[in-house]
């Protein structure tokens, strides 16, 4: 698997898309720092951008890579290699190269701006960790979609739809549910609702950093335990890991069953 990971990674490093994403994040970092003139504020803006953009890029790029590397996959399939290692290797190749574009693209401008001397370094690290998690999750989801759909157009369609659903529509439905049942105690429901969507989950991690004052204004005991202690942080990270593991398991499962 590591060998396949290596070749996928090389393959991606060769393709111009990795550079496009790297350049994009670099530009984003530079522009935000230039506009805000303030590291902390730039980090806040970035957090808002990251939780929407990283999933979009992860899904689109994942689906694209899968369809584009069909030949490579076929070549590998002709070799005596384990199926699961072929697909996991490719998946990790994509996810890692995307994460690297993200970390380097954002890290470099912030480093030059004096990140290490700033108090924003923890927020920034959290941002990069969250971004990496989201990349891992959404690339895995993209691979799932692509593995289940031979038709490219359909695959892309589902990928965009998935992103749109998790980034926007889900929250809309969530909000409506909460308002509809406002007479009942809702703190458990709202936390569970958050756990079920990786974008919301990452958002909570960011809320824990930026909006803890507002979150503590709410009365619910479960809420309080979740946001008032490290419990929330730990649970969120566990759930993010689950969100990586489940789709990856499905990749191996699907890959084993598929005919080529």
């Amino acid at each position: 698997m590591l060998k396949i990971l290596k070749y996928s990674f090389y393959d991606l490093m060769r393709s111009r898309w990795s550079y496009v994403y790297f350049a994009f994040y670099l530009l984003l970092g530079v522009v935000l720092l230039f506009l805000n003139n303030d590291l902390s504020k730039a980090v806040i803006t970035l957090m808002n951008v990251i939780i929407i953009l990283v999933p979009l890029i992860g899904t689109i790029f994942g689906v694209m890579y899968y369809y584009n590397s069909k030949e490579f996959t076929e070549l590998l399939l002709a070799q005596p290699l384990k199926r699961s290692s072929i697909f996991l290797g490719q998946y990790l190749g994509v996810a890692l190269s995307l994460s690297m574009s993200l970390i380097l693209g954002l890290g470099i401008p912030f480093m030059f701006y004096g990140l290490f001397k700033s108090s924003a370094i923890w927020d920034f690290s959290l941002l990069l960790i969250t971004g990496t998690f989201l990349t891992l999750i959404f690339t895995a989801l993209a691979f799932n979609i692509a593995l289940s759909n031979e038709n490219k157009i359909k695959g892309f369609g589902y990928a965009i739809l998935l992103w749109l659903f998790l980034a926007v529509i889900y929250d809309g439905l969530f909000l409506m549910t909460l308002i509809m049942f406002e007479d009942y105690p809702l703190d458990k429901l709202s936390l569970v609702g958050t756990m079920l969507n990786p974008i919301d989950l990452s958002r909570t991690l960011i809320l824990l950093k930026l909006d803890i004052s507002a979150l503590l204004g709410y009365t619910g005991a479960v809420f309080k335990q979740f946001f008032g202690t490290n419990f929330g942080l730990i649970v969120s990270f566990i759930m993010l890991t689950v969100w990586v593991v489940l789709p990856v398991l499905r990749i191996t499962f699907k890959a084993k069953k598929k005919d080529f």
Binding site: I4, R14, S69, K70, E71, F72, L75, A78, Q79, P80
Partner: peptide
Amino acid sequence: RHKIDYLPQIANFPSNLKVKELIKMIKDL
């Protein structure tokens, strides 16, 4: 499968790879 050499029907190779690199890669794998 290590005891089988297989020649697939349609030779689909990653197009941005050089022949040399491909042979080296397969040997590596």
